[in-house]
Design a protein around this nucleic acid. Structure first.
Lengths: 134, 134
DNA sequence: GTTCATGCAAATCGTTTGCACAATG
DNA sequence: CATTGTGCAAACGATTTGCATGAAC
């Protein structure tokens, strides 16, 4: 009956987490693979992917570019906030003033030049919340 | 010598843009394909993709990327801003206070519940700017 | 008539998965 | 020993691309 997952330790998984914690480069799966190939001659990319997903489940790492696997297209070329419903997958445009202040402070504190930005909120949309109440 | 691209008009491209402008659903390429299949019996998905990329080049549409290329992983599980350099591809963590105010106003104005968010800035990083100056 | 766009199918590429074997608890 | 992890290769799915034909200018 119990559907809890019982993770067993593995050298590979711990090394993958170690690599991730010792870099600030937000690496890709294959970069991690390259780093570990020397230590684990027989390592396979599949194992790296499997472990990254497990570490994600365990909440020990974060993945950028999550959500659906499809690219979505938008006829509105003005930057704007999006709200993505994790239940039904709908993407809503949020009609808000972009906060120029934030962009300015990012630029001054980092020295980078901002040309574009993308703000996304994830959660449950009002429609799905209403459905759940019935 | 001239490397400018000379786009020729095409019915298909105009219809794709039309579909995109007449919906607020942020469709995928294959959804657009399905919409147009009746009007263009011989339409191919490849054509839809090709035209979406051209419309992107022309700046007439926007692409929200979720998957496709490659996922990046982050050992830091706290939500934080990212700055992505369009020149060198580096991803920087931005050390800022997340503005709880923004999340609150998104929730009140939309009725959606925010569980997570992702703020990304795109531009040229300070390192690349310095290189350009030499 | 030269250039660009199309349709079709095959190719690409990051990621996932099935399987037999090894490691963990 | 029951379960989870591994390596390998094949499978997958969204997107891209090569090629011959068709449309635009």
């Amino acid at each position: 009956m119990k559907s809890e997952k019982a993770y067993k330790r593995s050298r590979q998984r711990e090394s993958i987490l170690g690599v991730l914690r010792n870099t600030s480069t937000h690496p890709t799966a294959s970069w991690i693979y390259d780093q570990l190939k020397d230590d684990y001659p027989g390592l396979s990319l599949g194992t790296v992917y499997r472990n990254l997903n497990i570490l994600l489940e365990m909440g020990k790492i974060q993945k950028l570019q999550f959500g659906s696997t499809f690219d979505r297209f938008d006829g509105n070329i003005h930057p704007h906030y999006h709200f993505i419903c994790e239940e039904c997958g709908s993407i809503y445009d949020m009609d808000m003033d972009m906060d120029a202040q934030i962009i300015h402070s990012v630029e001054t504190m980092s020295g980078h030049s901002v040309r574009n930005y993308r703000f996304e909120f994830y959660g449950i949309c009002s429609r799905c919340k209403n459905k759940a109440e019935n």
